[in-house]
């Protein structure tokens, strides 16, 4: 399983390095979301942007993750690749872990870019890098696992581009809420009434559940796609 996961992750990242879809399309899209929020919330109206920075950051990550997941699923839907994959003898759990890992790496890079964007555009002062990193790791694993799972679920459908957001966004809403709350004080420097640890636990549970579910169910979902 681990060998297959490494093989698939390496292949997906090689394709991404060559096609540069994440760098040339997903990252600009994510930064554009931050800029549009900045326009909409008007930085001249006090510290509205600072207070909302954490939520806006994770909304941008979430919307951008849809593109990354769609791209990841589309690779396996092209020109008979799904059949070739089923015939290959690759362990479906390994395929799932490999694809989720590749998406997670792309999201991690995206989060660094967005983090810099939030600091520059929203004028926030980071005060808890450690909490931010732990939140980002847990949220990224959860998003990548759930996205990969729903990506293969929608892969066989002609309307997958429009269906995937409808399926995925409600499911990952807990990640948005928990990641926003967990990183609120660390990202904005403002005092928070809620301790990040409880929200980090929720993120960790979400990530573990979706990784475990993906490992167990990906093979069956591949058969249906």
């Amino acid at each position: 399983m681990w060998r297959d996961a490494l093989l698939v992750a390496g292949k997906d990242l090689r394709i991404e390095r060559r096609s540069r879809v994440a760098l040339n399309q997903v990252a600009p899209f994510a930064v554009l979301i931050l800029v549009l929020f900045a326009f909409a919330l008007d930085p001249d109206r006090g510290d509205v942007l600072v207070q909302a920075a954490s939520g806006l950051f994770w909304v941008a990550v979430l919307l951008s993750s849809l593109l990354a997941v769609q791209r990841s699923a589309a690779l396996e839907a092209a020109d008979g690749v799904a059949d070739a994959q089923r015939l290959s003898g690759l362990d479906p759990a390994g395929i799932f872990l490999g694809k989720a890992a590749a998406v997670a790496v792309q999201l991690a890079v995206l989060e660094v870019i967005l983090g810099v964007g939030v600091v520059l555009l929203y004028n926030v002062h980071l005060s808890g890098i450690g909490t931010l990193v732990i939140t980002a790791v847990a949220a990224t694993i959860g998003l990548a696992a759930a996205g990969t799972l729903y990506g293969v679920l929608a892969a066989g459908l002609r309307v997958r581009e429009t269906l995937l957001p409808l399926l995925l966004l409600p499911v990952v809403a807990p990640v948005l809420i928990a990641a926003t709350r967990a990183s609120e004080s660390a990202l904005t420097g403002l005092a928070s009434a809620v301790a990040p640890a409880d929200w980090l636990r929720l993120l960790a549970v979400f990530a573990v559940i979706y990784v475990a579910f993906g490992v167990a169910a990906y093979g069956s979902l591949m058969e249906e796609s």
Partner: peptide, 15 residues
Amino acid sequence: HVALLGHTTGLYDDL
């Protein structure tokens, strides 16, 4: 244990 050569290529375009 089988190899299928069908109507599609089964190849990744970007590789």
